[in-house]
């Protein structure tokens, strides 16, 4: 049997930004020219970088942002269903981050204030189009809804930390961030 050796199978990666600011994705792009050798090792499925709308079977899912509405939950669950392992990337995915600052307010008060009482904003009442995802009572980090395998803290995580995590995962090492790469701000 002399079948040709199969080409090294690329790691299939999906990424998304839920209740986040895309800052983590920007930081991802800050790995700069390292993205070129990286693309020899991974291929992107659903991602803001590819504009694919739904994620298929993947090895790795990278989630930026927390959960502030129903759509965030649906996307997260789709990722969990399709990805062998999930990474929570950045402060919002890990602890709710900036969007969670609304958690000490009652959502009803927020909606009322924004859409009904605040001058200049109160046109048309609270949107109720079925196309729009409903906001959750509170913002939640993603580990409260699905199991998360790895966490990458930072706001955003530095490009070097993202690089370290990816290269660790590709090499089959348990990811570990040393001093300087691990930070929460």
């Amino acid at each position: 049997m002399n079948a040709p050796a199969p080409a090294v199978k690329k790691l299939r990666v999906a990424t998304t930004s839920l209740a986040g600011c895309f800052g983590c994705h920007m930081s991802f792009l800050d790995i700069d020219e390292r993205i070129i050798p990286l693309l020899d090792l991974i291929e992107f499925d659903r991602s803001p970088l590819t504009d694919i709308k739904h994620c298929g079977p993947c090895d790795l899912g990278i989630i930026e942002g927390g959960l502030c509405n129903a759509e965030n939950v649906h996307v997260l669950r789709e990722f969990r269903k399709n990805c062998k392992f999930l990474v929570a990337m950045g402060a919002c995915a890990i602890n709710g981050g900036l969007p969670a600052q609304r958690n000490h307010l009652d959502l009803r008060d927020v909606l009322e204030e924004v859409y009904q009482t605040e001058a200049g904003l109160s046109h048309g009442g609270i949107p109720n189009d079925p196309e729009l995802p409903l906001p959750l009572n509170q913002v939640h980090p993603i580990h409260e809804v699905v199991k998360i395998d790895y966490f990458l803290p930072g706001c955003p995580p530095p490009a070097d930390a993202i690089w370290k995590l990816l290269t660790d995962l590709l090499a089959g090492r348990t990811p570990s961030l040393g001093h300087g790469l691990m930070h929460y701000d």
């Binding site: 602890n95 709710g96 969670a100 790895y150």
Partner: peptide
Amino acid sequence: AYELKMVSPHFDMFY
């Protein structure tokens, strides 16, 4: 928390 390599709060947030 950095020194002890705490990467997530693990539990459910109380806010």
